[in-house]
Design a binder for these strands. Structure first.
Lengths: 196, 196
DNA sequence: AAATTATAAATGAACGTTCATTCTTTTTGG
DNA sequence: CCAAAAAGAATGAACGTTCATTTATAATTT
């Protein structure tokens, strides 16, 4: 690693420290109570430094949203390939997403907050949705093969993936905990909802 | 209606005008961009007047949350009685909630925003949850009768009611529209997820 | 290799604005 | 004419953002 790489790494560190700090503060106190001053302090930089890396607060939030969304998708399709049988593929993706939501709680909670408030620009939100295409394709395939009900992708998502957001939230509030056995039963519920 | 009632009505009008204005602004721009000055203006009162009816902004939001939550529950259990057969009762409640989420979009979107951000005090949130008891009792009954899977109430909620929140959001963003036929298919998905 | 200059990164203080809330005055209904 | 309700102006605090400097790094010259 030469001297230029070190420099780049340092910059990346600061940027990701800022994104991390934002994630934490927005999760803990909400967008309305996550001022730039606190974000800077938590990231260990001066307030003005934020503006070297991001145009403004909205840009910071948008960037964080896209970054987290990308990490989510990366995780979702780990070990998946579109040559797999539909049910097997769905199972892999579903468990990947469950893992993500239940382990990377902060990231998942942030996404859920973004998706239910007007804090993200609509165009940015749309950009974040593209990553999910392989799952939509899988569902199409399943419908063609007569394995999955001929429902809209929105209904399919609502009844298989979206419920995990709720369970994650309940777990974070210590109202509920998912173990492996319960997770299997939960997958079964998702599958029963959409299978033909 | 005597003269005192008129006065009370007027007070109620102002209070509900404030709650309505808050609902609108929080929905359209988020909590972080719904200042008291704008709320007052939209409600047609002076900023200071808000403080005659609410202790502070948080109190205003909390009150709104509880009021909307109550209206939601009222709607949810319309025409339901616990002497009904489990499936019939569940069907009535499910369609009631679907109606609410798809017609009273503003109220439902507000609740979804509250439930996914730290903008509501945790104790207030817990208070708002109590209203749902009849549904939880119904599920208990269903489990006893062997009609419904022996899953936690959180999973049951996640796979039957919660998905409607997602469909509502997609509908509000004009990405999707539910007609009567699709709604029936959607109910079927909910039921398939939890029925034994 | 040391010394000097140029460039980039980072800072803390300061800006104008907006916020939630309060204070004082005016209006209103009985 | 009085108490309650409402208004509007005023408040300090806090906000996002910018600015003039300082500090650190790189390039160039001795």
């Amino acid at each position: 690693m030469n001297i230029h790489m070190i420099k780049k790494e340092k910059i990346k560190d600061k940027k990701s420290a800022l994104l991390n700090a934002t994630l934490t503060l927005v999760n803990d106190h909400g967008f309305h109570d996550a001022p730039m001053s606190k974000i800077a302090k938590l990231a260990g930089v001066a307030p003005a430094t934020i503006y070297l890396y991001f145009k403004n607060k909205q840009d910071l939030i948008n960037n964080l949203y896209l970054e987290v969304k990308a990490s989510f998708s990366d995780c979702a399709f780990k070990g998946y390939h579109n040559t797999m049988p539909v049910k097997k593929g769905f199972e892999i993706i579903w468990y990947n997403i469950a893992d993500y939501k239940l382990n990377l709680v902060n990231e998942a909670a942030f996404l859920s907050q973004c998706d239910n408030t007007p804090m993200i620009d609509e165009e940015i939100r749309k950009e974040g949705l593209k990553h999910l295409q392989p799952l939509l394709d899988l569902w199409d395939q399943g419908k063609k093969e007569g394995i999955i009900k001929p429902l809209s992708i929105f209904v399919l998502y609502a009844y298989t993936i979206y419920p995990l957001t709720f369970l994650m939230a309940m777990q974070e509030r210590n109202l509920y905990t998912l173990n492996t056995k319960v997770l299997d039963e939960t997958f079964q519920a998702a599958w029963d909802a959409i299978k033909l």
